[in-house]
């Protein structure tokens, strides 16, 4: 249970982290880059689908069209991970973390504040990037004379929501890995490693691989978004997927707090 003083300390830490983010030029640039990269990536993937998928846009199903559109959000996701990792790692590298800890000696509040802030920023980027790439995709599909997905259909909304969900989850994991690993590069590679685990799990024997998929982030996100359908190796269930994501977030935050508390800064 969080006491009143601790909650107050968390809100102050959050206000401080927000002020740091606002005055971080590279942060603002990275956020802008995430949105630009999402738009460019969607255009690139839609316009090169004949090369990458061996089909014309007209030959894609509506679901495939939406999946290609949303690839721009995947690119924004990578940028968000970089943003989250750098937000922590740059503070460690410049030793500003000493001032932060002196002002907020209950270190878990710093970890929670950074994780909450990055999750919020990632949500905002996810929403804006998704709106941009969907509108852009619609325009490209319409100009190509192809049917556009209806935004009121349940599966479209679910896939869109699931894709957006990926960003705050990975942002929190990025923040926490930056506390667990010694520098920004290793932290980013660590998050990338977690994202790659489903591919590595396919190398395992079938049953073991299926069990491993059940515990990973990406299959959970794919299940929520509907990208993974029942019967697929990475399909879990909606409830399991939510629980898995919650467990990952809880575990990485707990590990980051333990690591940060144990460190002399």
């Amino acid at each position: 249970m969080i006491d009143v003083a601790s909650r107050n300390s968390l809100s102050l830490a959050l206000a401080g982290e927000r002020a740091k983010l606002v005055s971080w030029p590279n942060g603002r640039r990275t956020i802008g880059f995430a949105l630009l990269a999402a738009v460019l990536a969607t255009a690139f993937f839609l316009l090169t689908v004949a090369i990458t998928a061996g089909k014309t846009l007209a030959e894609l199903t509506t679901r495939q069209s939406l999946e290609v559109m949303l690839m721009g959000v995947d690119v924004a996701n990578i940028t968000v991970i970089v943003l989250a990792v750098l937000f922590v790692a740059e503070e460690t590298r410049t030793r500003l973390v000493e001032v932060s800890v002196a002002l907020t000696p209950r270190r878990h509040n710093i970890v929670l504040a950074k994780a909450l802030l990055m999750a919020a920023v990632a949500c905002a980027i996810a929403v804006v990037a998704t709106v941009l790439v969907v509108v852009e995709g619609m325009v490209i599909l319409a100009l190509s004379g192809v049917d556009v997905p209806s935004l009121t259909e349940g599966w479209v909304l679910r896939m869109t929501f699931g894709t957006m969900l990926m960003l705050p989850v990975h942002a929190v994991v990025g923040v926490c890995f930056a506390y667990l690993l010694p520098n920004a590069l290793l932290s980013f590679l660590g998050v990338f490693g977690v994202m790659s685990l489903p591919s590595l799990a396919t190398l395992l024997p079938l049953e073991l691989g299926r069990a491993a998929q059940f515990l990973l982030i990406t299959p959970a996100v794919h299940t929520i978004s509907g990208v993974s359908q029942p019967g697929a190796i990475d399909y879990t269930s909606a409830l399991s997927a939510v629980l898995i994501l919650a467990a990952w977030i809880g575990l990485v935050i707990a590990a980051a707090i333990v690591a940060f508390r144990a460190r002399d800064v």
């Binding site: 102050l12 982290e17 002020a19 740091k20 005055s23 001032v99 002002l103």
Partner: peptide, 11 residues
């Protein structure tokens, strides 16, 4: 900017 974030943290 530096003092601003310190103000925010210290209330």
């Amino acid at each position: 900017d530096h003092l601003t974030w310190m103000c925010r943290v210290s209330g």
